[in-house]
Write a protein that binds this DNA or RNA. Structure first.
Lengths: 137, 137
DNA sequence: CTGGCTGCAAATCTTTTGCATCCTG
DNA sequence: CAGGATGCAAAAGATTTGCAGCCAG
């Protein structure tokens, strides 16, 4: 977890626990998921710390905040350029291969048209996963 | 507002007011925005009705629910296939031209790879709008 | 030692729910 | 007239805030 040092953030046990929980995590957990996962080993930790830490990690580019479900933030330790496929029924979220993204040309067009300076893009594809396709037939 | 009839929904004054407020609206308002806009003319209306109505309209395909800002739902009366450009600073949301979307091929690939049955896609491009680019320089 | 971080609790904000009443079709 | 829709208020869920005390650097 030397990543923390690079950013100048203090290396507290709480942060290490959160970082450790996120490392390689493909579940795209919400703040509450993270809190619940860690509190057994860290009963004293508060929600505020989880939120603060996630906010800090995001600001330092160590994690991404996803806007997939209205009403709940989700976080992704994978900061590479990728997008998501979401099951509208069971809420499972899986990563899409990097090939699936907007063409640079489309991005340029979008920015030029509206005069925006583009910072990031998020593509959400909603559907039914294999399991839910079966059970909802 | 004969659109309501087609769906079989009852044509109440509240619904008409909400429909009317949304008609041609390009602001992508939240439930609260809608409530505030309408309550002066309709002081008796409750939040529950706004939410119920929006939910119903969505289920009948008359509006789309956007997931752009975590923590708040937004609604769009434009149900055509289009996406959004969002200013991260002033929160302005503008429509993107229809040309900007995923290729059918990408969608097919995405679904096939994970076995999903794709229902819809949402592309959010975040950045700084012209005004905010200036002031934040 | 000092400023940033934590823990706690209360507050805020958004959305949902239960239920009695109302009114459209 | 019946069943869906409304209004109200309370509840639920997620996130934010203020502040005193703590601890990593």
């Amino acid at each position: 977890m030397e990543k923390l040092k690079k950013t100048g953030m203090k290396q507290t046990p709480q942060r290490l626990a959160i970082m450790h929980h996120l490392e390689g995590n493909k579940c795209h957990p919400s703040a509450e998921d993270i809190y619940k996962s860690i509190s057994p080993k860290f009963p004293s930790m508060s929600f505020a710390t989880v939120y603060n830490t996630l906010e800090n990690l995001k600001d330092h580019g160590l994690i991404k905040e996803l806007t997939i479900e209205s009403g709940k933030k989700r976080f992704d330790p994978d900061t590479s350029d990728h997008h998501h496929l979401i099951c509208v029924k069971c809420k499972k979220i899986v990563d899409l291969p990097q090939e699936i993204q907007l063409q640079q040309k489309a991005l340029t067009t979008a920015g030029v048209i509206k005069g925006f300076r583009i910072l990031s893009t998020q593509i959400n594809i909603y559907g039914l996963c294999p399991e839910c396709t079966k059970t909802s037939s």
